[in-house]
């Protein structure tokens, strides 16, 4: 039965060659249409919506007054939190997202050594933190950070004979604990990206250098790093974008919206402040203005990053 049906279907198609041709022209548009629709509805429309909102005093009850740039000017001048949140995000971007690469690049160079055994096992373990949810990570690290009974202070005091750190109550401690979690989660991931990049480097370059008497360190500095530069540029760009949007870690670790990033708001990042302003305080207009200022800062940082990268090349 089935084959007869299939044949009937085939015959029908053959009989309609013209319409098949037409569908060939039309098909790509139909296939791509879900993207176009979701781009317009969930991408472009909210962008316009959010610009509009940012010029209004707009609360959960809807738009109240058109106030022009006042949301922006207030944030930049009289707002008690905003400038500090930029600073917090910036510090976390450097110590959380930037520092990763200082670990990841050497680790990748080590892992790329063709004499290394057990490379698969190393790669797998380095990959696991990346796929673990922030919530799970925070729940584990909160225990490690406990100031009286956590492993970190235990090690500091009893093994290294140092002073304990107030991981969850002092401003420096709070920023460090967020930065540590970011590093822990992403060092391995960046390492794997660098390893993938290193695999495209011709081994014969190293062999030639070895014959010329260059040691491993010289090889890394003279061959590997210059060839890795485009990839480093790419991963740093991602780190700037991601680093400035840290929200989950401080939100879960430091008691959610009610505590606003803990003592002295040390963990209140710009993204966290945006979320609190929009969703906890119901100030949607002001929240949208924060979003656009944050976007602007990310763009400026990326332009600076690009300039520096460009100068390095010349």
């Amino acid at each position: 039965m089935k084959t007869i049906n299939q044949n009937a279907a085939l015959l029908k198609k053959y009989g309609n060659r013209k319409s098949t041709f037409k569908s060939h022209m039309l098909a790509p548009y139909i296939f791509i249409s879900p993207f176009i629709i979701s781009f317009l509805v969930f991408g472009l429309y909210p962008l316009g919506y959010s610009i509009t909102m940012s010029f209004w005093k707009w609360t959960t009850n809807g738009p109240q007054d058109f106030i022009g740039f006042k949301n922006y000017t207030r944030l930049l001048t009289t707002d008690p939190f905003f400038i500090r949140t930029l600073w917090t995000s910036f510090i976390l971007m450097i110590t959380g997202s930037g520092l990763q690469h200082v670990f990841a690049i050497p680790l990748a160079i080590f892992l790329n050594d063709h004499k290394i055994k057990g490379k698969d096992v190393f790669q797998l373990t380095y990959f696991l933190p990346y796929i673990t949810s922030t919530v799970s990570i925070v729940l584990i690290f909160a225990q490690l950070y406990d100031e009286n009974y956590g492993w970190l202070n235990y090690i500091l005091e009893n093994w290294l004979h140092l002073k304990p750190i107030h991981w969850l109550t002092s401003p420096v401690g709070i920023k460090s604990s967020i930065a540590i979690m970011l590093n822990w989660r992403f060092i391995g991931w960046n390492t794997l990206i660098y390893v993938a990049g290193l695999q495209s480097i011709d081994r014969s370059l190293y062999e030639a250098a070895e014959i010329d008497g260059a040691n491993k360190f010289q090889q890394a500095m003279k061959i590997t790093l210059p060839l890795l530069k485009p990839i480093i540029f790419f991963t740093l760009t991602l780190s700037i974008i991601g680093g400035f949007q840290v929200f989950d870690e401080p939100f879960v670790l430091l008691g959610g919206f009610t505590k606003l990033g803990g003592p002295q708001n040390a963990g209140l990042t710009t993204a966290f402040y945006l979320m609190a302003t929009g969703f906890e305080f119901g100030r949607l207009g002001k929240g949208s203005a924060i979003a656009w200022l944050m976007f602007l800062v990310i763009i400026v940082l990326n332009i600076i990053h690009k300039k520096i990268g460009h100068n390095e090349k010349n």
Partner: peptide
């Protein structure tokens, strides 16, 4: 097909737009 290039540009731009930029209007929607 016509418009393929524009679609590629759209796609790149959505990757560059941070999640948080749209989150408030997205919630309203």
């Amino acid at each position: 097909f016509k418009g393929k290039k524009i679609i590629y540009t759209f796609m790149l731009s959505t990757i560059a737009i941070p999640t948080f930029l749209n989150i408030i209007p997205f919630f309203k929607m």
